[in-house]
Nucleic acid binder design. Structure first.
Length: 406
DNA sequence: AAGACGGGGTG
DNA sequence: CACCCAGTCTT
């Protein structure tokens, strides 16, 4: 016989009713339940008993908080709880490692210190501040969200995760992060670090790399997040994942939660969380064409729906090395310019997500000046630095800026 | 339920 | 080269 007290209610359950108990835990959260289940075979928060171990939220928060007080990272975005600044950092940190973000964060805030200044900015300037950080959609969505915030919310961030998630670029994680860190709301987060920490802590060994696959982890996160200082707790979880509970060779001897960690106690740390299967990379062959016309070169803005949408690049043709000349002749963009004197400048590879692009660089001279569409422009070589460019585009721009190549 | 989306650091 | 990263959005 088990007795579970929930708020003011008391339910009496037998083992046959555990499913109901999990549903109740699911509804109210572990924190909302005063439990006397210690001796029973009950697990935690909406997850079947066979899938994970029970967790003591209080003990975890206590041990983690003490560790965080002495071990926390000193990060630029931790010096302010201004929702705008927290937001900028969270968007930049999506799928991007902390070390890479630091400088971008500082520079971006110097350029766009408030949501109003971002809303008023030109998209190209926002992209230029983002150049090199990747996932440029983030910058454009953030810019769009800033406009919504400025015009429809008076520049004030909404104070619920549901409303935050209505803004472009803010998903479940980012909404929880802003709510907990900037507003001290008791909202859970799950991202790369906490996902790993929580999976190991609870001994959750099932696959996470499919849609909804980490739903149990969200339930665990929800069951653990404290009513007070949720932002601190969430950041502590992330720090632990980043510094101690690492993917390879975690430092369990330095972990404040090792005693309560099911993966550690069952010798499964290296197998939890389960590794995801990787997709094969696809090989592409393209050429970037440097079309010269006096001191200027032709650049092309990447269209909506293309890679690097909104950024400038040198015109491309899709062709292997031997067919580049023919491809230039057939290119709608380049054909009218009657390019002459093609000269190969070299080849390099560029990897984007699971594509590997072998990119030949060919310079030529425009014999005619075709009528340019809006996404094309002639730009002086020494002005290329003012453009927001793709990573390969920037690399080529630097190449041709050298006197030896000019 | 998958795939697309960037780039750089690490072993 | 393979793997990883304070995810989000669209088919």
């Amino acid at each position: 016989m088990l007795v579970i007290s929930i708020e003011d209610e008391t339910s009496t359950l037998t083992r046959g009713h555990l499913r109901t108990a999990w549903a109740l835990i699911d509804s109210f959260g572990w924190n909302g339940i005063k439990t006397r289940l210690q001796g029973a075979d009950v697990k935690v928060a909406g997850i079947r008993s066979s899938e994970c171990r029970p967790l003591n939220a209080r003990a975890i928060a206590r041990a983690l908080g003490a560790w965080y007080a002495r071990a926390r990272r000193d990060l630029p975005w931790r010096r302010s709880r201004d929702p705008y600044r927290v937001w900028v950092s969270e968007i930049m940190l999506q799928q991007t490692q902390v070390e890479r973000v630091k400088d971008f964060y500082q520079r971006f805030l110097a350029l766009f210190p408030t949501v109003e200044s971002l809303a008023a900015a030109d998209e190209h300037d926002v992209l230029r501040a983002w150049e090199g950080l990747g996932y440029y959609r983030r910058a454009r969505q953030m810019h769009a969200a800033a406009k919504v915030l400025a015009t429809e919310h008076g520049g004030i961030f909404p104070r619920t995760v549901a409303a935050l998630r209505g803004l472009p670029g803010i998903g479940r994680y980012t909404a929880g992060a802003i709510a907990s860190i900037a507003m001290d709301l008791p909202e859970p987060i799950v991202e790369a670090n906490s996902r790993r920490v929580l999976a190991r802590l609870a001994g959750y060994a099932k696959r996470l790399d499919r849609p909804g696959g980490d739903e149990p982890i969200w339930k665990i996160a929800h069951s653990l997040v404290p009513q007070r200082d949720a932002g601190r707790f969430n950041q502590a979880l992330m720090d632990l994942g980043a510094m101690v509970c690492t993917p390879d060779r975690p430092l369990c001897t330095a972990c404040p939660l090792a005693r309560m960690c099911d993966a550690k106690n069952s010798g499964r740390v290296s197998r939890i969380p389960m590794k995801s299967v990787r997709r094969a990379t696809k090989q592409l062959r393209e050429a970037a064409i440097i079309v010269r016309r006096g001191a200027r070169v032709l650049v092309q803005k990447r269209e909506e729906g293309e890679w690097w949408a909104g950024l400038w690049d040198f015109p491309r043709v899709q062709a292997a090395a031997r067919k580049i000349h023919q491809a230039i002749g057939e290119s709608k963009t380049l054909q009218p310019l009657a390019c002459t004197q093609p000269k190969a400048l070299g080849t390099f590879t560029h990897t984007v997500t699971h594509h590997r692009i072998t990119l030949a660089v060919v310079a030529c001279t425009a014999a005619r000046t075709g009528k340019l569409s809006q996404n094309l422009a002639w730009v002086a070589v020494d002005k290329l630095g003012e453009l927001a460019m793709t990573s390969p585009g920037r690399r080529i721009a630097k190449m041709i800026a050298q006197p030896s190549v000019r």
